[in-house]
């Protein structure tokens, strides 16, 4: 097992290198350059000034030299300094946004599992009943409805008409003056809409997974045996069927690890949530190469790690596929 782990970890290195190299080239292929992109067509920005800024960012050097310089820095875990005009270290920009994105994604993921799994179980148990069909329609509606549209409707209803929930942002502007409980309540209020909407969209996947996997198990002969033994349905379901049916769901947990740091631009923009999606979008739009690369590297690393984790989890849960 340990050898397998080390082998997998070592394999990640060339994979990461390849990913960064390709991303680096593709990013630099897009037209437009950092620093001046906002001041394109601005009469006050002269040609000399442009050249000066290019040299300042090291963009006058050939691409492979730029990549080498970037690689040398990243080896020391130095993500470099953002090309955006705030000139802050990339790692600071990412660090400041990761907690927001991760906590929202985590809450909504927990919500998805808490609601999605029972829906799946119920639907499998009562297959083809009206309620099964209604639930299926409900989760698919959530999957299909565009987030921004749903978000705006709910914001209008709960925010503008009922005035129950705040519309956007994460904290009220008088946040610092609130008591401790007040602060928690304030954040909770701000989180209700975004978390619910992002969870609503994710229900379909997990509940379908759960349903089909449980149905598969229920068809097995040992379930028939269990029924034949005269066990009550509850026990058959919980003790015999569910344990096996949950296996593939475990894999999904591993695979959602990289998703935790990814945020959707549209979603974050609508709710004015300063998360990773916005940061990534903004850095792409302003050709902020170090920030783009920083986020890509972290994302790539987490994806590879997530794959590894889900493989390990799977092996641990299911003795049949364990490797020597």
């Amino acid at each position: 097992m340990l050898r397998y782990l080390i082998k997998r970890l070592l394999f990640m290195i060339p994979m990461l290198l390849g990913i960064t190299l390709i991303s680096f080239i593709v990013i630099h292929l897009t037209p437009g350059e950092p620093g001046v992109i906002e001041s394109e067509m601005n009469p006050k920005v002269t040609k000399e000034v442009r050249e000066r800024i290019r040299a300042y960012y090291g963009l006058d050097k050939p691409l492979h030299v730029q990549y080498y310089m970037w690689l040398k820095r990243i080896m020391r875990l130095d993500f470099g300094i953002s090309f955006a005009s705030d000139r802050r270290p990339v790692i600071d920009k990412i660090k400041e946004r990761i907690p927001v994105t991760v906590s929202i994604n985590l809450i909504s993921m927990v919500l998805i599992f808490i609601i999605g799994i029972p829906i799946g179980i119920y639907c499998a148990k009562h297959k083809d009943t009206t309620i099964d069909k209604a639930l299926t329609a409900f989760v698919f509606a959530g999957y299909a409805a565009p987030t921004f549209w749903l978000a705006l409707l709910l914001m209008m209803f709960f925010g503008v008409y009922l005035e129950w929930l705040p519309i956007s942002g994460l904290k009220s502007f008088n946040f610092n003056e609130l008591s401790f409980m007040g602060k928690i309540l304030d954040i909770a209020q701000h989180l209700i809409l975004p978390v619910c909407i992002s969870a609503f969209g994710g229900l379909a996947g997990i509940s379908r997974y759960m349903k089909s996997s449980l149905l598969e198990v229920l068809r097995q002969e040992y379930i028939t045996t269990a029924y034949a033994k005269g066990l009550p349905e509850d026990v058959v379901l919980k003790k015999h069927a569910l344990r096996n049916a949950l296996l593939p769901v475990i894999t999904i947990i591993g695979l959602s690890v990289p998703g935790l740091i990814g945020g959707s631009v549209i979603f974050e923009s609508i709710f004015s949530i300063p998360g990773m999606g916005q940061l990534f979008y903004m850095s792409v739009m302003s050709r902020d190469y170090p920030t783009i690369m920083g986020i890509l590297v972290i994302g790539a690393f987490l994806t590879l790690l997530g794959n590894l984790i889900s493989d390990i989890l799977y092996a641990m849960a299911d003795p049949r596929i364990r490797i020597g």
Binding site: M155, M156, E163, S168, F173, E268, I270, S272
Partner: peptide
Amino acid sequence: YIMRIIPDTATMFLELKRYG
């Protein structure tokens, strides 16, 4: 003077109506 960052103009308009 407070400047809020609201990246979406539709949201901004709703915030205006809500006196945000």
